[in-house]
Design a protein around this nucleic acid. Structure first.
Lengths: 294, 294
DNA sequence: GCCTATTATAAATTATTTTTATAATGACTG
DNA sequence: CAGTCATTATAAAAATAATTTATAATAGGC
């Protein structure tokens, strides 16, 4: 069976129009007709009901079933291509969430530099939630990820190397700035400036808010620590961030949380279980372990 | 790309011999040579090192990487075939572990019978661990599974409908037969007759044994309750089984366990997340839910 | 040096996919 | 309600791709 047929089929499921699919793939329309016929013969069943009365193409149960598998197969094929391309080019794509990048990467980079390995590394930035998908989908080979629970996904191997509590950051002009420690419930009336939901901060924050039975007033969401910190400094709101965030600023104050069983920011090294690491990637992994897991 | 090439490749990875692969597929040897060449062109890399010096075929890193994905793709394609075949034949394969079959299935079967649905159901028996794989691999559409933890697998949807403790069964001639309740640690010196490890009883039992710091003396493993019970009656050993096991025998005594936080036998209805249920299968599922989850 | 087992290569053959051209179906439109 | 449009199906021809046949090349064993 040709995977091209699955690609035609996959697209047809979405577009519901033979001619449009043909146009997208730059082939003629009968090509799509015959491709679908081939699949119908191969699987011994109708995949679509050509219902010209209601002017649309209905997908049969078998069609729906095949669609699920076709998508998965095409995705995996694409993953294989991406991985093998990087494998042969000796390149490593390292996924880094900004906070981890700021806090841990300088040390790692120094060690990689010493070994002349920094040139072959390309970093990709994004929130931990987004990076986990990028890792799964093959855009990334290795990643440092943050999480609130130990990462356990069948397709991803994760090695925890650190965990740190979350803190509250407020402007120096804020009434709470004089405090050192605080309970989350005392923030009931505050305005918050937070990361957007591709960061695990969001999950941790929601968990605490839910547990304290209030719906926090989130006035802004950003994807950058500095933006958040600037807003906090201006007293637009307070924020909830890992202690990892380097705090050299005089206009922002860090408060510890006193709550029991708070979520923690767990840092892990992660890679795909199905990925065969190149010697170069193994070396990068070894440096990561050596530097981070001391 | 043709999946046939992946099949040739997958086999070649295992056999490491072009001619043998050709023979297995009933094609000539150059077919395999060209198929591999096609893949090497498609992925832009060597997949094998034809090392005639050491008389064997070495797989490159890219080859290993592709092998992982090729196997997964072929498996999924096979799964699609199996599922669609049953879909069109309106048949449902229901997986049942023997204990669950004995205890719950008669009631379910009665309801299915009333609705004339029993004819289209084929049951497949096996331990819960084995059935979980059969379900994942498409041999089974729906299953009732036992587990000690709530089932949580990405590819399987599970709905818990009952949980029962495990018990100890001893012969009526056994010194412990006079007891009603017992601690697991008191069984340190006993001989055990158990299920084999395709049953979750094994996992639960090992957990208890580990927690009580002893290595139990297992004298026999079977895959059938009656065999186990007969051996227990003859005082060959004692056994550890769910309370679900119907106990109409006069020659065997059931003892409750007094341990804190014992494993429980959790019964769940399970099916593949990627599986599109036919109307018939949905009906079966509805009957299972109606009967079991009362 | 000859035989064997194995993989590679080239040309011929066979199979498959795609295109071209055209038909068929039903909705919409003036 | 005939004409037009958008859509999918069909058949034959053309283009591509896969497989076989026949043979070469390579290295190990005797």
């Amino acid at each position: 069976m040709n995977t091209k047929d699955l690609a035609y089929f996959d697209r047809l499921i979405k577009l519901k129009n033979f001619s449009q699919v043909a146009a997208e793939f730059g082939v003629t329309q009968p090509t799509i007709t015959t491709a679908i016929k081939r699949l119908e013969t191969e699987f011994g069943t109708k995949l679509f009901l050509r219902d010209r009365v209601h002017r649309d193409l209905a997908v049969t149960a078998s069609g729906q079933q095949l669609a699920i598998h076709a998508t998965a197969i095409l995705k995996r094929l694409d993953l294989a291509h991406q991985e093998i391309t990087r494998l042969t080019q000796q390149r490593t794509v390292l996924g880094l969430p900004p906070i981890i990048e700021n806090h841990y990467f300088p040390r790692v980079a120094a060690h990689l530099q010493e070994r002349g390995m920094l040139e072959n590394i390309e970093t990709l930035e994004g929130g931990s939630v987004w990076l986990r998908n990028a890792l799964r989908d093959g855009q990334v080979d290795l990643a440092l990820l943050g999480s609130t629970e130990p990462l356990s996904y069948k397709s991803i191997v994760a090695e925890e190397f650190d965990r740190k509590p979350f803190n509250i950051f407020v402007s120096r002009q804020h009434p709470l700035a004089a405090r050192k420690r605080i309970y989350f419930s005392e923030l009931r009336r505050e305005r918050f400036v937070l990361f957007n939901n591709s960061f695990i901060h969001d999950a941790a924050f929601n968990q605490l808010a839910r547990r304290n039975h209030f719906r926090p007033d989130v006035v802004f969401r950003a994807r950058d620590t500095h933006i958040i910190m600037n807003l906090v400094a201006e007293n637009v709101g307070v924020t909830y961030l890992t202690g990892l965030v380097d705090q050299q600023r005089r206009d922002v104050v860090r408060l510890e949380l006193l709550d029991d069983e708070q979520p923690e920011f767990i840092s892990s090294i992660a890679y795909r279980a199905s990925h065969v690491l190149t010697p170069a990637q193994k070396q990068v992994l070894a440096v990561l372990r050596g530097t981070l897991a001391e």
